[in-house]
Structures are given as structure tokens and as C-alpha cells.
């Protein structure tokens, strides 16, 4: 839930990085931390185990610029990916304004990706949040690995699209980041579907990290516009 402070002229928004364990959520935040100027970001807080697995969450506040005299401040959180940490994972979703799902592209992790995506849907619905109405982007991470599944396979498994019922939104919408691809389209069966924007990434080198962050932040601000 974004918070607008007219006294300090700030807009605060919460973005949560979700996904399976060891998928690269923390690495995304570490890259953002390393590459942003110290005066535009706060401390990177990690509540992790001794083996550096996220126990509760990682947190990084970043300023992404000013609009209409209001400073836009984004609070980036990761959730613990391991299946058994669901209680703490769910807590982090409270008040979320935008979601990034960091999928592990390795073929062997396909099932873990799907399980985590299902868990995200379940947790969001338990809060009464409608995931189809929330700024949401996907990042296919670890694209550099030889055992990475194709983007088509990942899209089919994780981003097949949800049905669009509102007639106003039933119009062909090209994907601005991928030529010849669409975000909203009509299937041969006649139903309209919408997919969320996706980005390919290699979080350890930083590839795709800022593209993903910019995309979700922009979508969040547009919900306020």
C-alpha cells in the first residue's frame, strides 16, 4: 500500500521479490545496492541464516527520482524462497504495491518455480489481494547457464496468461520490450489473455536487474497516475 506524505513530499511504495530458493532474489538487491549512489539508497538489511540463506527478508530502500515535486522512494524486499518459510514469506507481502517473480531458468528448477508461483497466488489470495490487478513482472534469471530452459518453455509454464474479462482491456497490446510478442492477445479459442512483462537476467553480473526494477517501479507509479 503506497503511502503519500504531503509534509515531507514523499511517495513510498513497497516492491517484493518473490521466487524459489536460490533463484537470485537477494542477488538482485545486492546488485541494486552496489550500483546505486549512496545518497539515493539506504542500508541493505538481511535477516539471513549463518549460511546466508534468507530467513525472514532482505530490505533495501532506494530513491528513483522526483515526480511533481514528490520524491519516489521504493522499499525493496525479498522473501525467503525455501518452501518451509511460508509463514514469514506471507508476512512480507502485507501492503505490497508491486511484485517481481525471480524464476530460476535451469530446467531442473522448473517444478520449484511453479510451486513458488502457486504459493504466491495462494498467499496473495489469502490477503484478499487480486494479483491480476497488481503491478507484476517476471525475471527469468540465470540465462547464462547451459542448462537454462528456453524462454518459450518458461513463459508456457509460468506466464501462460490470465483471462481478461473487461472488454475495455480486450485489445491487442504489443510487448514493448520484445518485438513480435504481445502482453494482451486473443487466443484461437476466442478468449483474451494477458501476460505480465518478463525480462531475462543474469543477476550475478547485473544483466536485467535494473530493467526489471524500472519496469515494476514504473507500473507501480502508473497505478497512482
Amino acid at each position: 500500500m503506497s503511502m503519500i506524505n504531503y509534509a515531507s513530499r514523499e511517495i513510498n511504495c513497497k516492491i517484493v521479490y518473490y521466487g524459489p530458493g536460490l533463484g537470485g532474489k537477494t542477488t538482485n538487491l545486492e546488485h541494486v545496492y552496489a550500483k546505486t549512489k549512496p545518497d539515493t539508497r539506504g542500508k541493505l538489511i538481511s535477516l539471513a541464516t549463518e549460511t546466508e540463506r534468507t530467513l525472514f527478508f532482505d530490505f533495501l530502500p532506494v530513491d528513483l527520482g522526483t515526480i511533481r515535486g514528490f520524491k519516489t522512494r521504493f522499499h525493496l524486499y525479498t522473501v525467503p524462497g525455501q518452501v518451509y518459510y511460508n509463514a514469514s514469506r506471507k508476512l512480507i507481502l502485507k501492503g505490497v504495491d508491486g511484485l517481481v517473480f525471480v524464476a530460476d531458468s535451469q530446467v531442473e528448477r522448473m517444478e520449484a518455480n511453479q510451486e513458488s508461483m502457486q504459493n504466491l497466488y495462494d498467499n496473495m489470495s489469502e490477503y484478499g489481494y487480486d494479483i491480476t490487478k497488481l503491478p507484476f513482472v517476471l525475471q527469468y534469471n540465470k540465462r547464462d547457464l547451459p542448462n537454462a530452459a528456453s524462454v518459450q518453455q518458461l513463459q508456457a509454464a509460468l506466464n501462460p496468461g490470465w483471462e481478461v474479462h473487461e472488454t475495455a482491456r480486450q485489445r491487442l497490446t504489443p510487448d514493448p520490450d520484445h518485438p513480435n510478442e504481445t502482453l494482451v492477445e486473443q487466443l484461437s479459442t476466442g478468449e483474451w489473455v494477458e501476460r505480465v512483462p518478463y525480462f531475462e537476467g543474469v543477476a550475478v553480473t547485473g544483466d536485467g536487474v535494473f530493467d526489471t526494477l524500472k519496469a515494476v517501479s514504473k507500473l507501480v507509479l502508473k497505478t497512482l497516475a
Binding site: 500500500m1 503519500i4 497488481l134
Partner: peptide, 15 residues
């Protein structure tokens, strides 16, 4: 409910 509802407070609220 979309999760992205927002709330705002004015300078008077702050005071």
C-alpha cells in the same frame, strides 16, 4: 481488492 491502494496524510495530519 488490488493491493496497491494508497493512503495519504496532509501537513495538518503530520502536525
Amino acid at each position: 481488492m488490488a493491493a496497491s491502494s494508497s493512503w495519504a496524510f496532509t501537513p495538518e495530519d503530520s502536525t
